[in-house]
Amino acid sequence: MIGKIIGALVGRQLDRRDGDSGVKGAVIGATVPALLRRLGPLGLILGGAYVAKKAYDSRKAPKV
C-alpha cells in the first residue's frame, strides 16, 4: 500500500511539470508498480533499467 502511495505522489509530480492537474500521473504512478510486480523478474529488470537510465541521464545533463 505504501508503494502505491509513493508511486502516485511521484507520478503526480511528474505530471504537474507540464501544467496539468497531476491526476493522470497519479493514476499511472499508482498502477505501474503493480504491473511491474505482476511481470515478475522481467518487471524487476524493466523497472531497474528505467531507473538506471533516468539516473544516468540526470548525471550526464549539463549543470546550470
Results as ranks from 00 to 15, higher is better:
Met1His: 09
Met1Asp: 14
Lys4Leu: 09
Lys4Trp: 02
Ile5Leu: 13
Ile5Glu: 03
Ile5Ser: 10
Ile5His: 04
Ile5Met: 05
Gly7Lys: 02
Gly7Val: 06
Gly7Ala: 04
Gly7Trp: 02
Ala8His: 00
Ala8Tyr: 00
Leu9Ser: 09
Leu9Tyr: 03
Leu9Ala: 14
Leu9Asp: 01
Val10Arg: 00
Gly11Val: 03
Gly11Asn: 04
Gly11Gln: 00
Leu14His: 02
Asp15Lys: 05
Asp15Asn: 15
Arg16Gly: 07
Arg17Pro: 01
Arg17Val: 11
Arg17Glu: 13
Asp18Glu: 11
Asp20Asn: 09
Ser21His: 13
Ser21Tyr: 08
Ser21Lys: 10
Gly22Trp: 00
Gly22His: 02
Val23Leu: 15
Val23Arg: 10
Lys24Phe: 06
Gly25Thr: 09
Gly25Pro: 01
Ala26Ser: 15
Ala26Lys: 01
Val27Met: 11
Ile28Met: 02
Ala30Glu: 05
Ala30Gln: 06
Ala30Phe: 14
Ala30Asn: 06
Thr31Tyr: 06
Val32Phe: 06
Val32His: 02
Pro33Ala: 02
Ala34Asn: 11
Ala34Gln: 11
Leu35Phe: 10
Leu35Cys: 10
Leu35Arg: 03
Leu36Gly: 01
Leu36Cys: 12
Arg37Met: 09
Arg37Val: 12
Arg38Cys: 08
Arg38Glu: 13
Gly40His: 06
Pro41Gly: 14
Pro41Asn: 07
Pro41Lys: 09
Gly43His: 02
Gly43Ser: 06
Ile45His: 07
Ala49Val: 05
Tyr50Met: 14
Tyr50Arg: 06
Tyr50Asp: 07
Val51Pro: 04
Val51Arg: 10
Ala52Asp: 07
Lys53Ile: 10
Lys53Gly: 05
Lys54Thr: 15
Lys54Ser: 11
Ala55Thr: 04
Ala55Glu: 15
Tyr56Phe: 14
Asp57Cys: 04
Asp57Lys: 13
Asp57Ser: 13
Asp57Glu: 13
Asp57Ala: 12
Ala61Thr: 15
Ala61Ser: 11
Ala61Leu: 04
Pro62His: 08
Pro62Tyr: 08
Val64Pro: 03
Val64Cys: 08
